[in-house]
Design a protein around this nucleic acid. Structure first.
Lengths: 242, 242
DNA sequence: CGAACACTTGACAGCCCTCAACGTGAGTGG
DNA sequence: CCACTCACGTTGAGGGCTGTCAAGTGTTCG
């Protein structure tokens, strides 16, 4: 996957087909006035490079952002200096939703590779949402989904289950955006995966190796291929189908 | 704490002061028309008794609900029959927010003791939210808070940290609703706490006993007293202040 | 009073973390 | 082109936290 490639450049009336807001814009006929207003408040950000921050913990909250290209990692550092990865955000996914409740961002967001974003002032998009019910509904659903996502990871699963669910999840999300579901890049370091899945980096390494030995996946550095999706889904089973 | 006691009975123009929506109604001057409409769509539910379900996984999603009295547990059962407790909801807190993204409830909600609720049709409250920006904002913030809450539990904490954070969290939430922060009832079974914190029931038992032996808490069956809040906060530290 | 249930307590094992050393690539400068 | 460096990743040994299994205690309720 070439993460800098855009599936759609987006013009004034179709907008990005890869974007999380596309459902609000495309599928369900937002009127041209509403669509124009949504474009008015979009601010294109990037390209950011690996290591560049979108926002940092404690920054005043002003906007949410949709990833257009690349991967963004959200994370926080606890009192003891340990990093907790909250999520990896692929093209079409939205970051900053957990900041709405407060007046500052509760976490950091950093680009893992070359990334582009669409930035939406939250006060402005809120106002627009009162005029465009479909947009309001989309925002509600985006927020609600994130609750479910966070709850899933909170369960007490084994390292194998976590890793399998992580890989299947990545595959499905990439697939939904038009990328290959069976061959993709891990844009994040093993350490990031570990901090996301609450495992030690060594455990991540060992599980991946075992999966490879069992011909479930083929992994070379950060290149990954799913060889036996059904077995992987079986391992992840309890997590995916809760 | 007598969980069946209402802090406020709520009349047409003040509504329940313990309610999560009170901020939208009271603090920031929703106009009387908006307030009247909000009351129009409220449906009082209950009293429910321990074991009664508010909704079940798979039920068609129609409404969110605010707990007015009592405690509600949300949980799901995974493929292997293990119960995962998503949360305990005290008076003034809202359940069903994680259902907005889908068309059915993704979890069960059951009363742990005698409980009363206010039920809000979601389609209707959405429409009202387009007319009352303050209500929309409240909904956004409620949703956003739940993301943060779920993410917290997802971290890899020790049993002591989890339990301490759980008790401090309960104490703070009860305190915010006008109940004693130092003496309260655990309305849920040890098993429920265990399933919530991802621990074995035996571990919950042992940690509570150790806390008691160290004079941090006094616990007798489901009656709990916090004897040394600062020490408890120190143990929970990394979780509470992330 | 008896049964079911919640909870406690103890012994043991297993998963995964910690610590440590080593291997491997990418980038750099000579 | 090669040596060097450094970050990242892998592999191995050992230990600790917590889950599992089992038995016992206490309480509620019919």
């Amino acid at each position: 996957m070439d993460s800098t490639t855009l599936a759609d450049d987006g013009d004034a009336f179709t907008f990005c087909s890869t974007c999380a807001f596309s459902q609000a814009c495309l599928s369900q006929g937002m009127d041209k006035s509403g669509l124009r207003d949504l474009h008015m408040l979009v601010e294109h950000v990037g390209p950011l490079h690996a290591g560049d921050h979108v926002f940092r913990e404690g920054d005043p909250f002003e906007a949410i952002a949709a990833v257009r290209a690349g991967t963004v990692k959200t994370y926080s550092i606890d009192r003891d200096g340990r990093e907790h990865v909250l999520g990896f955000h692929l093209p079409g996914e939205v970051i900053g939703l957990n900041a709405i409740a407060g007046d500052v961002y509760p976490c950091n967001a950093v680009a893992l590779d070359t990334a582009m974003l669409c930035r939406f002032s939250f006060p402005k998009i809120s106002v627009l949402a009162t005029r465009v019910p479909r947009l309001q509904q989309t925002l509600f659903k985006l927020l609600s989904s994130d609750i479910g996502r966070a709850s899933l990871l909170a369960g007490d699963w084994t390292a194998d289950e976590r890793m399998a669910a992580f890989l299947i999840g990545l595959s499905r999300r990439l697939s939904a955006r038009g990328f290959s579901p069976d061959r993709f890049q891990l844009t994040m370091a093993r350490t990031d995966i570990a901090n996301y899945l609450r495992l030690a980096p060594e455990t991540v390494s060992r599980v991946l190796k075992r999966f490879q030995d069992e011909d479930i996946i083929a992994v070379d550095r950060r290149e990954l291929e799913l060889l036996d999706r059904s077995r992987l889904e079986a391992i992840a089973g309890a997590i995916l189908h809760t």
